[in-house]
Design a protein around this nucleic acid. Structure first.
Length: 587
DNA sequence: CTAGGGTTAG
């Protein structure tokens, strides 16, 4: 019998009780248990030594009492085991007294259960249930693994079998769904919890709030925030951190600050949580361009003797990089180092990124060397920034070296990285190397995308091979890629420059048929062509279409037409165009 | 045990 009692005692935090009456009863039972503290520990120990006790215990309906009777057998072993090392007599007396107490309680429980059952007939046959089941752990693991469909169906199976998982398992599910953007399902689970239990906790609501923030729906997040209050759940620091972060990201610094101070006034405990909120605020200020405000938060942290950490230093370093003050950023990096914080991949990437953006690729490569020597492993982001920076600086061969480092370290770059190098070689007119990289990309299992093809088409055109460019345009269709306006603009532009009127018009026609939208570049290229060919009627017509299209028109089409009409000495036309051009300018 | 802060961006 005691084995049953103590199993339920240990798991009583997982007990699901729908009715108030049964909760009262549980409290009575718990009261009895408290007198058993002496032997509790030993039985607790036994419980954890015996795997068999981890099975589901079914306490439903009449089973409850039967179960107790069945377990009575086993309890003898338990108590005798216990007696080996403890005062023999005391325990036995204790058991006898408690036997009586508990039996009385259980009889009352039985009658209460019957009344509850008849009252809730059909609604709930899982009123009293121990929510301990190894399936719950499978649900958790599936959630962490991102297998939410499977997790949901297993959870549903459990519910159907009247086994209600504990609140933490529910939180795993809710959190997984929220991270996946499946907010409706998460909300549905929370509603179910409100109805059948276990009651949702702060963590569940925090997951929902974060989920809405990730969907960029701060209003919904704030709604959930008040729903939570309506259910009597007090938000904690995590709640506030999520909301402060979201408000900062939206640029609502004032609202974020208000929430920040509200949080501080409510809670006087200083510690790591305050550090996180302050770091979020500081980061928000830096990103919204308010360096002074950010530094004010930094100073406040130092004044309040909040122990700053690596992350807050990284935020400051990044903040100065954002305000184009790499010198000061570097100073803070050194300060951080002096204080004994070991820079991590974030610290180095921040500096590498800032240096690349300034075109200081040699310095960026130097930082790369330092980080590898310090044993910090460069990641995708490090390589991406360096390769991009080098390609912008036309140091394509050096960029290719970094691509090789990546491959040597079994990091397969995303298409963007390959595309940047292919584009770099193409722009330098090195079609061989561009094609070689594309071949390597395919060999590593990375599929070329529309950017790859546009870069290759550009390369072909640049090297004067229009027909090769055209066949690339056909080839991409085989891979299921649809040419976009950039592709057509490249090809139309090339055709125009070669004076291939027919090809250009054909391509333009194809563009329209494919449902692509011609942009200013398309119009400008064709306009140039018509002017070169002296087809002024078509040129005027096209120009009218461009102005009517609602596209933002720059000066180039005006200049092309005006130049042409100048040469034709049609100065009235030139003047008209000039007036029209003035009209398009912002006053 | 579950929830919260920092690096990139054709």
């Amino acid at each position: 019998m005691y084995s049953f009692i103590f199993k339920s005692y240990i798991f009583n935090s997982h007990l699901l009780l729908v009715s108030e009456e049964s909760q009262i009863l549980l409290r009575i039972l718990n009261g009895s248990f408290q007198t058993l503290d002496v032997i509790k520990e030993r039985i607790f120990h036994d419980l954890f030594c015996s795997k068999a006790n981890l099975d589901v215990i079914d306490m439903r309906q009449d089973n409850a009492v039967q179960k107790v009777n069945r377990d009575e057998q086993g309890s003898k072993d338990w108590s005798s085991k216990g007696n080996e090392s403890n005062q023999e007599g005391d325990s036995t007396v204790g058991f006898n007294v408690l036997d009586a107490m508990l039996k009385r309680s259980l009889d009352r429980l039985k009658s209460m259960r019957e009344r509850i059952s008849s009252a809730e007939a059909g609604i709930s046959n899982c009123t009293l249930e121990i929510n301990f089941n190894k399936d719950a752990y499978v649900v958790r693991a599936m959630c962490l693994d991102g297998k939410l469909g499977a997790a949901l169906s297993l959870w549903w199976d459990m519910i159907q079998n009247s086994i209600v998982p504990d609140v933490i398992t529910h939180n795993y599910l809710i959190n997984g769904l929220c991270k996946n953007g499946e907010l409706e399902k998460a909300e549905w689970i929370v509603r179910g919890m409100l109805y059948r239990g276990p009651s949702p906790t702060c963590a569940a609501y925090n997951s929902l709030i974060r989920g809405y923030c990730l969907m960029n729906d701060v209003d919904k997040a704030l709604n959930t925030f008040s729903t939570m209050a309506n259910h009597g759940i007090i938000p904690n620091r995590v709640t506030c951190n999520i909301l402060v972060h979201a408000l900062c990201k939206k640029g609502l610094l004032e609202q974020a600050k208000n929430l920040f101070y509200k949080l501080l006034s409510k809670n006087h405990v200083r510690g790591s949580s305050d550090l996180i909120t302050s770091t979020i605020m500081m980061d928000g200020c830096f990103k919204n361009g308010d360096t002074d405000q950010a530094l004010a938060f930094w100073e406040r942290m130092l004044k309040e003797r909040i122990q700053v950490d690596k992350v807050s230093y990284n935020v400051v370093v990044h903040g100065f990089c954002l305000s184009h003050d790499v010198g000061t950023a570097y100073k803070y990096s050194c300060e951080m180092l002096k204080l004994g914080f070991i820079p991590d991949v974030y610290s180095y990437n921040t500096l590498v990124g800032a240096l690349c953006r300034q075109g200081k690729t040699s310095d960026a490569c130097y930082i790369y060397d330092v980080m590898t020597r310090m044993g910090v492993i460069p990641d995708q982001i490090t390589y991406k920034m360096i390769i991009h920076g080098l390609c912008i600086n036309k140091e394509i061969d050096r960029a290719t070296c970094f691509l090789d480092y990546m491959l040597e370290n079994s990091i397969i770059p995303e298409p963007l990285v390959w595309n940047v190098i292919i584009d770099g070689y193409g722009r330098c007119g090195d079609i061989q190397k561009a094609s070689y990289i594309r071949g390597k990309m395919v060999a590593f299992g990375v599929l070329p995308n529309i950017y790859t093809y546009n870069a290759l088409i550009y390369a072909k055109i640049k090297s004067g091979n229009f027909s090769a460019a055209q066949s690339l345009g056909k080839e991409m269709l085989l891979y299921g890629l649809t040419p976009d306006s950039v592709t057509y603009n490249l090809l139309i532009g090339a055709a125009c420059n070669l004076g291939l009127l027919h090809s250009a018009l054909q391509l333009h026609d194809e563009l329209l048929r494919k449902g692509c939208h011609p942009d200013v570049i398309t119009y400008t290229e064709l306009l140039k062509l018509f002017c070169l060919q002296g087809m002024m009627r078509e040129a005027d017509k096209l120009f009218g279409k461009l102005l009517a299209s609602g596209l933002a028109v720059d000066h180039v089409p005006f200049l092309i037409l005006m130049k042409r009409y100048c040469r034709m000495r049609e100065y009235n036309k030139v003047y008209d165009l000039y007036q029209q051009w003035l009209m398009t300018m912002p006053r």
